[in-house]
Amino acid sequence: MTTPQNVLVMIKQVPDQSAKAGINPDGTIDRAKAKRMLNPFDRFGLQGALTVKKLTGAKVTAITMGPPPAVEILLEALSQGVDKCILLSDRRLAASDTWATSYALSKVIEYTGPFDLIFCGLQTTDGDTAQVGPEIAERLNLPQVSYCEDFKLEDGKFLARRVMEGGHQWVSMAMPGLVTVANSYHHLEYPSIRGVQKVQRLQRDEEALKALIETVDLDIVKADPKECGLKGSPTIVARTDKVGELGGSCVLHQGETIPTMVRDVMGAASALKEFALA
């Protein structure tokens, strides 16, 4: 029977899409200039991992891959209650697609040692693929629950409620296993003052911080650089097109009184009356 003792959570720093900074006129992202944030979906994965910690006292390790500023999200994870962090940072990872990313991350996981559960966010807001979690599971030959929106631990099994079209299902997964957490997981907590203060203290104590956030590169985790980055990626973005301005036929009502504008639209859009209940 497995009681989870070691839990990993995979997180990512993404550009903040709501901030205008770093958005080039052609619609591409200048990641150096863009405001950075923890991938919103990863809050749910992080919370899942911390919930297991609450239930079993498991040790939680947060893992991320990215350039050095990604340490910011690891500090955030520490303030939430994560015990240890690993940052995989290596220039040779640039331009990795999901396949190459899942390779590099699976090597970090192997380097980290035994684990019972791996939590991931469902997807990232900069890639929107939802692929890296299941690809890691495949590389490590793990069972998986994707779209997990609730869970409990029972008889050494991970019981998960999984979103499906038109409903949900309950599944029972043997551990070790991988979980991607949907954004309908409703147990989100925010960092406590104590957690934030702990991190503030840490930031003044370089030695203590180093003990909690380990930075590794491809050589340390024994990853083959040929499998990473542009060379290791089976897909590329061949081109991007600006999406054409559609229609241009919008009849725009503005500057008039609300009742007038509504009346004009009521008159012009026959569907409003057609589908209104009698």
Binding site: E245, L246, G247, G248, S249, C250, V251, L252, H253, Q254, G255, I258, P259, M261, V262, R263, V265, M266, A268, A269, L272, K273, A276, L277, A278
Partner: peptide, 28 residues
């Protein structure tokens, strides 16, 4: 507003109640 067919520039909290009222008036 680039791809909608009809647009109203205004506060949702003013426009929608008015729309509901006019729909009600029109249809019972």
């Amino acid at each position: 507003f680039k791809f909608a067919h009809h647009g109203i520039v205004g506060d949702v909290y003013q426009v929608v109640p008015e729309l509901i009222a006019q729909l009600k008036a029109a249809q019972g």
